[in-house]
Design a protein around this nucleic acid. Sequence first.
DNA 1: ATTAGTTAGTTACTTTATGTAAGTAATTAT
DNA 2: ATAATTACTTACATAAAGTAACTAACTAAT
Lengths: 106, 106
Amino acid sequence: MNQALICPRFEKAMSLMSQRWTGLVIYQLLSGPKRFCTLETSMGISGRVLSERLKDLEQQGIVLREVFPETPVRIEYSLTEKGAALEPIMKEIEKWSQGWLPAEIE
Amino acid sequence: MNQALICPRFEKAMSLMSQRWTGLVIYQLLSGPKRFCTLETSMGISGRVLSERLKDLEQQGIVLREVFPETPVRIEYSLTEKGAALEPIMKEIEKWSQGWLPAEIE
DNA sequence: ATTAGTTAGTTACTTTATGTAAGTAATTAT
DNA sequence: ATAATTACTTACATAAAGTAACTAACTAAT
């Protein structure tokens, strides 16, 4: 009865991208490793959700968490190879947004 | 204080893609116009949210709603040019999912 | 020794988003 | 008159996200 079955891998990828904040976190990490507080303030996400997302992305092998025992402790989040492979998606979103969304009024 | 300002157009596009179901709705419409009940059953979205999403996408000029006064009434949703321009994003998501997500076990 | 400051979170609570299931309106078939 | 179909909407329940205060580990200053 289900005429258009969706590929489960595609569906999974889409549900990843469809989670609020996930795309932006990945986008931010494309320009290099970032720490928790940097992500928090630069994208306006709440610490509660950021913490949740980073754990999730780490578990999925998309993000790597590294602890540097400096003072105060520095923890850096970066993209794994799997995570960096998401870049073409981001580039296409960027292209579309530039081609089809209105620029801001100055 | 905000070292990595995000382009507002990109942010808007990302927030569109980050809404639950929006990406899948667009993906389904890439293969041609679809009616409400088809979308509803093929992707397992609730009517309440599907209705909300379609209205939203219509307002943003991504989806076109057409009424065919047959019996019973047929209403078709399709992508506008702006909506169809999202295809490259979907293709990249598809590529990534095939390259990095495990295939199902048969 | 006590107080304050920093980072990376967590916790309890509130608000918003989504799911569920029943209902409505228009139309035709029986 | 009753049932069936499509395209929704409505009321209510559950899940996800936002807010703000708190904790833990450490150092620096008073």
